[in-house]
Design a protein around this nucleic acid. Structure first.
Lengths: 202, 202
DNA sequence: TTCGTCATGTAATGGGTTACATGATTAC
DNA sequence: GTAATCATGTAACCCATTACATGACGAA
């Protein structure tokens, strides 16, 4: 979770903890916020795991700076080769761990680096998860509507509309993805017709 | 959190754990789900705290039922007097603990039993929390929009629209509340006109 | 010189989840 | 008689939060 987000951000450029948190906010928006209390220990853990290392690239840090009593100043982290590999692995995962509520936003935020086929599978996974939830709410709502008071009903309906809205959003995203790169259509008769051009999408 | 939800549901009628969880789903809808792994320990804890007790009201349980080896069968809980008091206290709370993401839904679900003035304060608290968040997202979005890729942008905008939507919803709810019971208008000139009657609020 | 914000970190705690273990009851 | 679902419970763990402590640096 935090781990993926950190890998993703450091994959773009080296950062120190404080900066990382700002970026986290800017990247994840309303979806998730992390406190320093979880960020710093995570950085430590990830460094211990060998995914991160301290970046000595900043010349001015080395220069005439104050004697650095013990250890106080920016600590800039960057990804190691193992870290990049780990990021790649996490990006390739298309399972519940990529489409549940808490995680989907983070995976989505790094779709730019994600394989198109994986993107579609995650979007579909998320959508079917939400459709499931929607049906659950709809059916219990149908059963209990008459027994609910004004407020409980409002809550159910607002919740239901939120889910419906997200489903529509996902449907559009999926369609866009498909238009951009149609699935490798395993046609029952013969190989698929050659597509006009396979554009490189960086 | 779970505590409030349990108090609220048992306030309506005695229930056993399993039933309680179904009701929880029906009441909270998309907002929150709890697992048995947190429900049962919570029931235990609340019983120990004296807010709940086992309900012996079910005649058929006492009847010819199997010898009950040790302890196995439905355990129906109901609120004690202390439990009702506790529920009242929690309902009267109008602070961050009632309008943050994780909690608001639960508080809202029991608005039917909540004092109208408290309802409005909670709705306003929630709204200003969301407005704050919306402004945060808007401003970082304004600063960073050009640097964001397609997906990150999508995520930001979908998130922003979700927040805007909830703000509108809250605004409507607040207006409805105000129409139903206008605030005790403190007029700037002179003492307020004598209200018909000052009802005893202990 | 003091305030705000940048910057790093730890300890205690919290509030849940997953996975597992068990057994009763009901419907086929 | 067996599968589904009703029903209760525990233990291990997870992933974060809050509150706190510390300190550098720039602007007023």
């Amino acid at each position: 979770m935090l781990e993926l987000a950190v890998l993703g951000l450091l994959h773009e450029s080296p950062l120190h903890g404080y900066e990382l948190r700002q970026r986290l906010k800017a990247t994840l928006g309303t979806f998730r916020a992390f406190s320093y209390g979880s960020l710093y220990p995570t950085l430590r853990r990830m460094k211990a795991a060998g995914w991160l290392c301290e970046d000595a690239g900043d010349a001015e840090v080395v220069a005439g700076a104050p004697p650095l009593t013990g250890r106080r100043g920016k600590v800039v982290y960057k990804l190691t080769a193992e870290g990049k590999e780990r990021f790649g692995e996490l990006l390739a995962e298309a399972g519940p761990s990529s489409w549940e509520d808490e995680t989907f936003g983070v995976h989505f935020a790094f779709f730019g680096q994600t394989d198109p086929a994986v993107r579609v599978r995650i979007l579909e996974g998320r959508r079917s998860r939400l459709v499931e939830r929607r049906e659950g709410v709809r059916s219990t709502l149908a059963r209990t509507r008459s027994r609910l008071d004004r407020y409980t009903l409002q809550l159910q309906e607002h919740g239901l509309e939120s889910v419906e809205r997200e489903v529509r959003w996902l449907t559009e995203l999926i369609e866009t993805e498909r238009r951009a790169s149609p699935p490798p259509a395993v046609s029952p008769a013969g190989p698929p017709p050659p597509t006009p051009r396979e554009r490189g999408a960086p």
